[in-house]
Amino acid sequence: MVSPAPRFLAAPRNVAQRNGLDSMDWEYTAELFLGGLTRGSIYALIALGYTMVYGIIELINFAHGEIYMIGAFTGLIVTGVLTMMGWNEVAILVIAATVAMIYSSCYGYTIEKIAYKPIRNAPRLSALISAIGMSLFLQNYVLLAQTSDFLPFPALIPEIGWWKPYSHIISSAEIVLIITTAVVMILLNFLIKFTRIGKAMRATSQDRKMAMLTGVDINGVISMTFIVGSATAALGGVLIASHIGQINFYIGFIAGIKAFVAAVLGGIGSVPGAVLGSLVLGWTESFFTGYVSSDYEDVFAFIFLVCILIFRPAGILGRSDTEKV
């Protein structure tokens, strides 16, 4: 049915050669640190959407990873078409990212309308099962409409000439990723804190009924959340795919799970928390694979998740809430 999941990210380039050597080597440590930062930024772009959706309707949107995957596929398709027409790389990147964001937003919007809105008042278990169904559906939709093989994704982010000597430590693609994440986080934070729709989002997440009574258009706010979250994921999808160099229909699953770990770690529902959690996860993973073992990378992430949820379910920046009795 499904081939074993490919590793979401490759292990640091030279673990094998380095393992026997002096592991105090500072350059290696710096490499792991920057590798972790890149990883963290990648997780963050996906985790932001998770955290926003959860903050508003308290639903683990299992299909979020698939939105990211669809973003990457849309990006690839646009890139393919434009490359054939002989466009310039940077222009392709911008257009591919924009189209992917638009399409993923539309997917996010539609998914919410079909699978979540009709059961908004049903038990949480129902919504969760519906989300799992949506995830399964989208994966197989892309599998059938496109292919089950890995597709190569061209490197769209150009190497900057004068940076070349340092690119073994951190490539310009990685720098673009990190900066994009930072910018997106700041923009989202601004959106939530200072705009009208952001205020409505915060009100809805606090008390949906009350927000509705005070005239907030709940459906609009929820749709908007899905749109923004999906667009972020799609941006991540294109940048990450171009950085890693290949995609298939299954990339959304592991990426989604890890981003979820990050979101929970940071305190689900909190935008800075999602980024912080992603960075922490990125670094711990990077150092774990760098110094301990790269075979158990995913096991490590899962154990990390289990431990957080058990010992500190509210996350680093989250607030714990107890049920009113």
Binding site: P4, E58, L59, I60, R124, L125, L128, I257, F260, V264, D295, Y296, D298, V299, F302, I303, L305, V306, L309, I310, P313
Partner: peptide, 25 residues
């Protein structure tokens, strides 16, 4: 034991994957 609803789902999913990954590696 302390987890409920959706967190429980994710943690059990994690456990399932941990066991599979261990068997694989």
């Amino acid at each position: 034991l302390r987890l409920r609803g959706d967190y429980l789902a994710i943690v059990t999913l994690g456990f399932g994957e941990i066991i599979r990954l261990i068997l694989e590696n």
